[in-house]
Design a protein around this nucleic acid. Structure first.
Lengths: 233, 233
DNA sequence: CATGACACACTAGTATACAAGTGTGCAAGA
DNA sequence: TCTTGCACACTTGTATACTAGTGTGTCATG
């Protein structure tokens, strides 16, 4: 169980403001967004100079990112943005699907009035974000919905784990072209999930969640074909 | 997805042997075995002197262990062996049960003749270990059986993840008194799991696994009562 | 022109030095 | 005796210096 999720709410209260966190967050975002491409080499020295800090905090950020499978450190040679391994993406999908399908069942069992209202609020905001084409907001609200469902299930630690596990999936997602129809489909699937949870339909909620997650995953092979130079194996 | 499995098989002397790995392995074993007790303070300087290395590799080991929830680093104050949090133990149990119940279903679906033979071999060795009261061997074979089932399911990465997630559970287990009857019960449950997998009984295998995992977990509250000073919350 | 040897720049791993902050214990005063 | 305040030792965080090893580009040679 990772004690420090990549985005830790508690870390803001940490005594000073550890410089390493800023470096870690920036590099992680750069890798996940594709700003830094798979295979690209980075060096502790250059990153340190760029952030105006010494090698030490950069090094700690590198190690954490390597542990998450986002960087590959080759001793005495260099550090590189890890290629996207299809096997790792499939493993991420498997773990996410397994955990979220179970937690959404629990959410359907446990959801109270306030929980259903919170879900409805998130859906309203999603519709608004899509209507005004704020894709970043829509993405953030997508994450928030999944996190909220897991919170309702009473297992917030599962989301903390998934944030790390999902990283490999997220790397693929940013490569996909977000067509208008795609966002509409995601929204519809979210609506169905929330609808089944609100109806306390345990089996229906699980089915809706599985279909949703698999739809997203189904595009992986196509994306890998179109971006084969970023992938390995 | 952790790229580096927490317990490297024989990382003692491979190549110029990164010193941090040795420190990490030793400290992790000390925390999980209870040699270092929850709440106990350790310092980078002392550990560095003890291992004959500088603070740098020790510091990296500390950070990884803190990420796993085994150490708690308080800036400018000190580093302490993390107390055992019942909530974290319950989360570990939940995640393990969710993932292993699904993988054992897959194992029952996919197991071939060679796989069944491998499982039978592990069971023979477990019976032998119990007969001669080699508890350490029995423990290692317990781990090996679960890992093998996940391998048969075709998801070895899931085991890599569970090795980390399980840590909080393992800390509790070493506190329990291993009575003779207990080992027998574990063995019987293992036999039932393997039997159901060999029979390709998907639902039966899942039931057997769930019962097995919950039996182990059922003792947690009693253990927490008897060792309340090691626990938090 | 092709090829091979070698110097060099660059990498991460490790050691050490310095900075900022915390808790404790002792001493001084009431 | 009790309280208060301060000095000090010790902690982790950060910066810098040094080590060992690798890849590459260049220059000399056939």
């Amino acid at each position: 169980m990772p004690a420090t999720p990549p985005t830790s709410p508690v870390s803001a209260f940490d005594r000073p403001g550890p410089r390493q966190h800023g470096v870690y967050d920036a590099l992680r975002a750069a890798v996940l967004s594709g700003d830094m491409r798979p295979g690209e080499g980075i060096s502790e020295t250059r990153v340190a100079a760029r952030f105006g800090v010494s090698r030490t905090p950069v090094r700690e950020a590198f190690r954490r990112l390597a542990d998450e499978g986002l960087l590959r450190i080759v001793p005495q040679v260099g550090t590189f943005v890890a290629p996207i391994q299809l096997s790792a993406v499939a493993d991420s999908q498997f773990i996410r699907e397994t955990l979220e399908c179970r937690t959404v069942r629990l959410a359907a069992e446990r959801a109270g009035e306030a929980d259903v209202a919170a879900l409805a609020g998130l859906m309203d905001r999603q519709r608004a974000a899509m209507a005004s084409a704020r894709h970043d907001d829509f993405f953030a609200l997508d994450e928030a919905l999944h996190a909220e469902l897991i919170r309702i299930a009473g297992r917030p630690a599962v989301w903390d784990l998934l944030v790390t596990v999902k990283a490999q999936l997220d790397r693929v997602r940013v490569l996909s072209l977000h067509s208008e129809g795609w966002a509409t489909m995601i929204l519809t699937q979210h609506e169905r999930i929330v609808d089944r949870v609100a109806a306390r339909d345990v089996a229906g909620a699980e089915d809706a969640m599985r279909e949703h997650l698999r739809t997203v995953f189904a595009a992986v092979d196509d994306i890998a074909q179109a971006n084969s130079h970023f992938f390995e194996k």
